[in-house]
Simulated scan of single mutants.
Amino acid sequence: MSRRGTAEEKTAKSDPIYRNRLVNMLVNRILKHGKKSLAYQIIYRAMKKIQQKTKTNPLSVLRQAIRGVTPDIAVKARLVLFH
């Protein structure tokens, strides 16, 4: 048991325009040299293009894309010893 207090669990904040945590998490993933405003510009421009081309809600398209690339089964590493 550590002598220090336990760390508080941080919740992901939502982005200013879409009010969605998923968009904010995506912005944090594509940060370029710590420039969050540039990352927001890239994401919002992409969302605008999705809106124009598909005529649907870009958040639903983003959720569907994320669901498509996440693995269905969690794979655990296993130690294999050869004799």
Rank of each mutant, 00 (worst) to 15 (best):
D72C: 00
Y18G: 00
I73F: 01
A46D: 05
G34F: 14
N20M: 02
L31A: 02
R3Q: 09
I73V: 11
A46S: 10
A7L: 06
K53E: 15
K76M: 09
T54W: 10
R45F: 07
K10N: 09
T54C: 04
K76P: 01
N24M: 08
V23E: 04
V75A: 05
V61K: 12
N28V: 02
L81F: 14
R21F: 02
Q52A: 05
V80C: 07
S2H: 10
I66Y: 15
I43A: 00
R3W: 13
V75R: 09
S60Y: 14
I30Q: 09
T6H: 07
P58D: 06
V27F: 03
P58C: 03
L26K: 04
K48T: 04
R29P: 00
K49C: 01
L26N: 02
K53F: 09
T11P: 04
Y18E: 04
T54S: 11
P16D: 08
A7F: 05
A77G: 14
Q51N: 06
M1C: 00
L31M: 11
V27Y: 06
L79D: 13
A46Y: 11
V23C: 01
T70G: 02
Y40M: 04
S60P: 02
T56I: 06
A12G: 04
N57W: 11
K35L: 06
L81W: 14
A74L: 14
R45M: 07
K35E: 14
I73C: 00
T11C: 03
K10E: 14
K32G: 04
N57G: 02
R67F: 07
V27S: 01
